[in-house]
Simulated scan of single mutants.
Amino acid sequence: MPHSQPARRRKDDTSAPWILTFADLLSLVLTFFVLVFSMNTVQYESWKAVVHTMNEEFNPKRPMVEILPHDTPPSLMTRSIPGLNLTYLEALLDRQLKQVPLFQEAVVHRVEDTVVISLPASLLFEPKLAVLAPDANRALRALAGALVQVRNKVQVAGYTNGAPVKTGLFRSNWELSLTRARVVAGTLSNAGYQQPMTVLGYADTRLRSLEHFNNVKSRYEWAERIDIVLINEKREQGTYDIF
């Protein structure tokens, strides 16, 4: 039985398979642009109704959430009570520090609505370490005796220069500055200052505040310091307050 031969394409047949692929591609591109256009022109109210309907159909037992207006309590809008006069406080602390031999290089100065006691870190710690020297411990205890009479809120902030930490005890200057501030705050607390203190670590992010130092060496030395900041805001009265 003779085998059937495949039909030969006629010479005038111009159809080709790629036309079907091209048509499918055009359809996909057109569909894509239609979807993009529809997503950019979504009507919120209509879409909200669709979402609500789908939630009702697919999750009828979901818990209902009721949105109620929230009013800010009046207690949060009250103004804070000022503490001691900052000019008087600056003079008082400067006189107290002059009586502590280790703090002769310390600086008491005003920064906006605060009084700042700046202590070079070289007076308190070894380079890139956070263990207090024996003299520093005694000096901070004397400072705590002055702070315990002051009813202004207190912050303790640590700063460093940009030199990397190579002691292996700290992963970065951030951790070093915060640890030093915590050590100073803990020493003041152990010495009798029992009020809450805010502890902050700034590392080397505040070097611009030292631009008033013309001497680069002095600027580098003061970059590593501990600032004890007294805010113009009254704290709660403590046991030892006399003012």
Rank of each mutant, 00 (worst) to 15 (best):
N161C: 12
N161P: 03
N161L: 06
A163S: 14
A163R: 03
A163I: 05
A163C: 05
A163D: 15
P164R: 05
P164C: 13
P164S: 15
P164D: 15
P164K: 07
V165M: 04
V165E: 11
K166V: 13
K166Q: 14
T167E: 14
T167C: 12
T167F: 09
G168H: 08
L169I: 00
L169R: 10
L169E: 15
L169D: 15
L169G: 07
L169T: 03
F170K: 02
F170M: 06
F170A: 10
R171C: 05
R171H: 09
R171L: 12
N173W: 00
N173G: 14
N173Q: 07
W174Q: 10
W174L: 08
W174D: 14
E175S: 11
E175M: 08
E175Y: 01
E175G: 03
L176I: 01
L176M: 03
L176D: 06
S177H: 00
L178Q: 09
L178C: 01
L178K: 05
T179F: 00
R180M: 10
R180N: 03
A181P: 02
R182D: 15
R182V: 05
R182G: 14
R182L: 11
R182T: 11
V183T: 10
V183M: 01
V183W: 01
V184Q: 05
A185I: 05
A185C: 07
A185Y: 02
G186R: 00
G186P: 03
G186E: 12
G186K: 00
T187E: 15
T187S: 09
L188H: 07
L188A: 10
L188K: 02
L188C: 11
L188I: 04
L188D: 09
S189G: 09
S189N: 13
N190V: 02
N190T: 03
A191E: 02
G192T: 04
Y193T: 04
Y193V: 12
Y193G: 07
Q194M: 09
Q195F: 05
Q195S: 13
Q195K: 06
Q195R: 10
P196A: 14
P196I: 11
P196C: 13
P196R: 07
T198C: 13
T198A: 15
T198M: 14
T198L: 15
V199N: 08
V199H: 05
L200W: 01
L200K: 07
L200A: 08
L200Q: 09
L200H: 04
G201D: 09
G201A: 09
G201F: 04
Y202C: 10
D204C: 08
D204G: 08
D204W: 03
D204Y: 09
D204T: 06
